[in-house]
Design a protein around this nucleic acid. Structure first.
Lengths: 129, 129
DNA sequence: CATTCAATGTTACTTTTTCTTACATGATTT
DNA sequence: AAATCATGTAAGAAAAAGTAACATTGAATG
């Protein structure tokens, strides 16, 4: 469903439309952008252009505000989300390095065997593992 | 899926966006409207606002033109479509009459059996079928 | 071949929309 | 009370879009 994703991220809506769809004022919408909660594209003439994803985000912001959460709170929520997403993505993108694999195996081994001493069973410095 | 239908018919796009999405000039888009091939909404300020359905329609028109079909031809196609759709809708709204049922059955029978002659197998004038 | 017509381009001028910036205001928070 | 947050409002400039008229081009037709 890559197609749908693309459509939802297409910046095709002017701010006037967004105002109607979200019941937010232009001032509010621009302010939320200033606060980095949305990042609309700009067209050649410097007009803000919004995607369906942006609309969703703005509706969500509106709901958060209605719930009494302030800008800082909302920012925090989105920062959290972004961090988690970035981490998950990073994991999926590049497969584990050798070092990662060694670390995971060692950790696994340790937790299973209960070994935690730097003894003959340690993998430390064992480049051939 | 009434939700989706609604979204697709929401007039949210200004002509500038439509130009980009369809690769048509403003002149072309307005001309097709003049020819009644599309009927965008207008906002309070009299600016044309298009829906996703309108976009589809315009892309289709573009394709027809590319195929060498002229306005008249395209109009005809859409008129046909509209007539068929209206008919189907009318059918769905009020259940079939006895006459309709008889006609449908006869047509079906004819096409299956290959009979087309006015002979002893004909249902013509057989009110009791 | 000259004419006509359909489809589109172009230009001029007006109105609407959007932009930025600055200042104002009513709640909170400190 | 002073500061800060979220939003409103106003001014002036730039961009987008509207209509209307005339221009161009390619295809069909007498």
């Amino acid at each position: 469903m890559k197609e749908k994703e693309l459509r939802r991220s297409l910046a095709v809506l002017p701010i006037g439309t967004v105002m109607k769809l979200t019941n937010l004022s232009a001032r509010q919408i621009r302010y939320y952008e200033e606060q980095q909660l949305v990042t609309p594209k700009r067209n050649e003439g410097n007009r803000r252009m919004y995607s369906l994803n942006d609309i969703d985000r703005l509706l969500e912001i509106r709901d958060f505000l209605d719930e009494g959460i302030n800008m800082a709170g909302i920012k925090h929520i989105y920062d959290d989300e972004a961090r988690k997403k970035a981490q998950k993505k990073a994991q999926l993108e590049k497969p584990l390095t050798d070092t990662d694999v060694r670390k995971i195996l060692r950790d696994e081994f340790m937790s299973v065997s209960g070994l935690a001493r730097d003894d003959e069973f340690s993998f430390k410095h064992n480049k051939n593992f």
